[in-house]
Amino acid sequence: MHIAEAILPNPENPAAGLVILGAGWALTAVGTAIGLRRLDHEQIPRVAVFSAAFFVVSLIHFPIGPVSVHLVLNGLMGLLLGWAAFPALLVALLLQAVLFQYGGLTTLGINTLAMAAPAVACHYLFGPLVRGARPRTALAGAAAAGATGMLLAGLIVAAALLAAGEAFVWLSQLSLAVHAVLAVLEAAVTVAAVHFLRLVRPELLRAPLDAPRRLEVSRG
């Protein structure tokens, strides 16, 4: 979930809010620079597919009782993109802020960090498992990535809100609870998506940015 504009910095403790926003921007800049350096111009359009997919996935709503939550799938993004998740998520979140007024400009740094840092962690922790030959460990890795991506994101958001001041303790608890529920859903959805990709398009899972073209399957 996003940290909305205007929550940070909180006048109770403006220094902490400024440090959080600044650190969010600085770390996002570093991550984006690393991600971009590893990409060549040929790969940019492929990263853009995932960026756009991340945006569209957030339109998928999951009803839970009277409310609904939307999917994020930053764990899956990390598995597929590695460090490129930073620029991909930065662009997707910028477009969401500009087109849909979710999040904001000053909080773009911390919001990108909260989504992309767990994605990169998932890449290193579970990437080898998911790309492995054994289906069971691959799906277990996918479940772990889906849950870890969300839980880490929840922890970062909650920590940022906690540091912002005591008035937001309840908000950070609420956000943590939402992320915990989402973690379960994301784990299940990530497992199904990885299962699907392993069967249908294994090369996308193995090396999405260098996968061979399949132009012959064109339709429409």
Partner: peptide, 14 residues
Amino acid sequence: YGYLVGMLLARGFD
């Protein structure tokens, strides 16, 4: 939804 996302990625990629 997982299959939907997988299909979205596969078709979108093509």
